[in-house]
Nucleic acid binder design. Structure first.
Length: 277
DNA sequence: AAGAATGTTACATG
DNA sequence: ACATGTAACATTCT
């Protein structure tokens, strides 16, 4: 579910409620495979009593920087999210990890599909080191994008989804950015012209910033959809131009939006605004 | 009621 | 090394 704007929204909301400075007083684990890097016992032993020094986002990871060099790195995958509850109460159906944070309450990791992962490590670089540039960072210029595209013969959309190429884009924002830039998802990366590279660079940043501004994209009403803390839903869905809009008119030219599967991912585009050649 | 779903990765094949 | 496809993870939603 969550891409850069959704993860950043989650991080911002956790910071806003005062997570930094809190101590993880106790950890409960109800689905062992959520803890990816250590045994559940070692995880509890190492995480309990640690202070959360700061929380930030890298790519689609939430990074909890703890004391003594430890980092708790969480990937929400498709349906992960955090809830903050005052009391332990009756644990919801899909809550797989609970971190007790002193007087702040209980940070509950809710994840219907159970794909989300917690990595507790002293070497955050192992996970974060090989990721591509942050698309909203200073280092990600049109020039850098061009350099990274050079010599690549893959289709542009799967390349945009590759976190080693650029970090944080997912299926929604990749489709939206390509539509905005007028680039067909199957264009060969190295064939993009300078004009197209600039347009794509602008489009990527535009759609991500827009998503951020709206607190993320929430589709539908089910519990598997994105919610930030306190069940806050994102309001970016009405801004989407092509994603899950198959058959509806392109906002630019009224041609019905088409859908195809690329690299096993549903892909939405306008065949008029995004010609193959 | 079958198919799809906002993500990643291991493995196989070319 | 690069590129591409498939299956797997597990459950819910349409």
């Amino acid at each position: 579910m969550p891409e850069l704007p959704e993860v950043q929204t989650m991080v911002d909301d956790l910071n806003a409620v005062g997570l930094p400075g809190k101590i993880i007083t106790k950890a409960h684990v109800y689905w062992e495979r959520t803890i990816a890097s250590l045994s559940v016992n070692d995880f509890k032993g190492q995480v309990q009593g640690r202070i959360i020094k700061r929380l930030y986002r890298r790519a689609k990871y939430l990074v909890f920087e703890l004391d003594a060099g430890w980092h708790l790195i969480v990937h929400l995958r498709m349906t992960g999210r955090f809830e903050l509850n005052a009391r332990l109460g009756s644990r919801g159906n899909h809550v797989h990890v609970i971190l007790q944070l002193g007087d702040l309450g209980y940070l509950m990791f809710h994840d219907t599909r159970k794909f989300g992962r917690f990595y507790l490590t002293l070497s955050p670089c192992c996970l974060l080191g090989k990721l591509g540039p942050e698309p909203l960072g200073k280092r990600f210029s049109a020039g850098v994008l061009g350099e990274r595209l050079a010599g690549r013969r893959r289709w542009i959309k799967p390349l945009l989804l590759d976190q080693h190429f650029v970090a944080g884009l997912g299926n929604i924002y990749a489709d939206e950015a390509l539509w905005r830039a007028g680039i067909h998802p199957m264009r060969i990366a190295e064939s993009l012209t300078q004009t197209e590279i600039k347009a794509l660079h602008r489009a990527v940043r535009y759609v991500l910033r827009q998503g951020l501004r709206n607190g993320g994209t929430t589709l539908g009403r089910g519990q598997s959809n994105f919610q930030s803390l306190r069940h806050r839903r994102g309001s970016n869905a009405p801004k989407l131009k092509v994603f899950r809009r198959t058959g509806l008119p392109c906002p630019r030219c009224r041609q019905p939006i088409e859908r195809m599967v690329l690299g096993q991912r549903s892909t939405h585009y306008c065949s008029v605004c995004q010609p193959v050649t």
